[in-house]
């Protein structure tokens, strides 16, 4: 069952990329920063999901809610930082970046084992 589930992220990613390439929607440069942090958060959540799946602790509700809220919150925090004049953007990048690497390390270990 779990083996079959591993193909789904790849299929989903392919579909998403395909749709992204087909739909010519350009984000205004003003919002580019928010989008970049949101993408980082989404990437972190997605890798967290893969890790949980491999560790057999995957919870779909937790995963989807985490993905959505992390993505939106990351963009909101960046927006807030811009309004306050504090580079909260950097905090988000560091936090998600560190988690991203941790998740990757765990996934690597699980694969190698």
């Amino acid at each position: 069952m779990v083996k079959r589930l591993y193909y789904l992220p790849i299929l989903g990613l392919t579909l998403g990329v395909g749709i992204g390439l087909l739909i010519r929607y350009d984000v205004p440069p003003t919002y580019a920063r928010y989008l970049s942090v949101a993408v980082l958060a989404a990437l972190d959540s997605a890798l967290g999901g893969v890790r949980a799946l491999m560790e057999r602790t995957f919870n779909d509700r937790l995963f989807i809610s985490g993905f959505v809220t992390n993505t939106i919150l990351a963009a909101l925090i960046t927006f807030l930082g811009d309004r306050l004049g504090v580079n909260l953007y950097l905090a988000a990048v560091v936090a998600f970046g560190v988690r991203l690497f941790q998740n990757l390390a765990v996934i690597r270990r699980l694969i190698v084992k």
Binding site: L15, G16, I19, D60
Partner: peptide, 22 residues
């Protein structure tokens, strides 16, 4: 779980392309 993963990664793929282009 399958659908959740599939849709989430589809959104991720879309966001990634959007970000690359932006």
């Amino acid at each position: 779980i399958g659908w959740g993963l599939f849709l989430t990664f589809a959104v991720l793929g879309f966001l990634l392309v959007l970000q690359f282009r932006t």
